[in-house]
Design a protein around this nucleic acid. Structure first.
Length: 208
DNA sequence: AACGAAGTCAACCGCTAATTT
DNA sequence: GAAATTAGCGGTTGACTTCGT
């Protein structure tokens, strides 16, 4: 196997919590060199940290527009619905929640939502159910009887990977890729997720 | 007040995918 | 095309905090 960027050099690297001073050094270095080539950043910053650790710190805490804590009801609802659809694909879920990181979503799910979901099997919003039953997005062709039954069921719980592997043409990555699709597609996805209520999320997560 | 259990969350680890040489 | 390097992901760990007794 190839070497990875966390492959040890001979010096023992610092581990554990970051100090304010380390944060400052890292932010300064990224300001100069950009948020890439993390091994280089780790060296140039003068931090005794591996590149991987620097990257994680930047992505989860230091980069601009990070939101910390106070996950709103709307965000929580979104996480639940996205998790139903995507499973533990945290980065994809986080990608639909501006300012949130995959790590934060993952932690929030594991500490708050997984238990909550076990307690009450929260159904999708009526809008989401309606969208599901209308089968209104282009790539999910639930033509098979079993799938149609499942959609009609209020406790929607289909496995995306199974769908992706079946003859049913459903590509999760494509479904959540808004780079090349028009606003139509985004609206369909948001409608599927029941996001009409939240104009911010409806804009694809762009806050003014 | 003391202590253990449970909860939370930042950070690390191992791995694969993507990119560069 | 192969090898090396880098980026990114999800699972897991462990330190710290909060809660209950």
């Amino acid at each position: 196997m190839a070497l990875t960027n966390d492959q040890p050099d001979n010096r023992v690297k610092t581990k554990g919590a970051w100090t304010a001073e380390e944060d400052q050094k890292l932010a300064h270095c990224i300001d100069i060199h950009g948020a890439k080539r993390w091994k280089t950043i780790a060296l140039k910053s003068g931090l005794n940290r591996c590149g991987k650790s620097c990257r994680l710190r930047w992505l989860n805490y230091l980069r601009p527009n990070i939101k910390r804590g106070n996950i709103t009801d709307a965000e929580e609802d979104m996480i639940i619905r996205l998790h139903k659809l995507l499973g533990n694909r945290w980065s994809l879920i986080a990608g639909r929640l501006p300012g949130r990181t995959d790590n934060e979503i993952k932690n929030y799910w594991n500490s708050h939502l997984s238990r909550k979901m076990n307690e009450d099997k929260t159904p999708l919003t009526s809008a989401a159910q309606e969208a599901m039953s209308k089968n209104s997005w282009k790539d999910i062709s639930l033509s098979e009887e079993d799938n149609a039954k499942e959609v009609a069921n209020s406790e929607i719980n289909f496995n995306v990977d199974e769908l992706a592997n079946s003859e049913i043409n459903f590509n999760v990555d494509e479904f959540f890729d808004f780079s090349s699709e028009g606003s139509d597609h985004l609206e369909r996805v948001n409608k599927f997720l029941g996001l009409e209520e939240d104009p911010c999320l409806l804009r694809g997560g762009k806050h003014e």
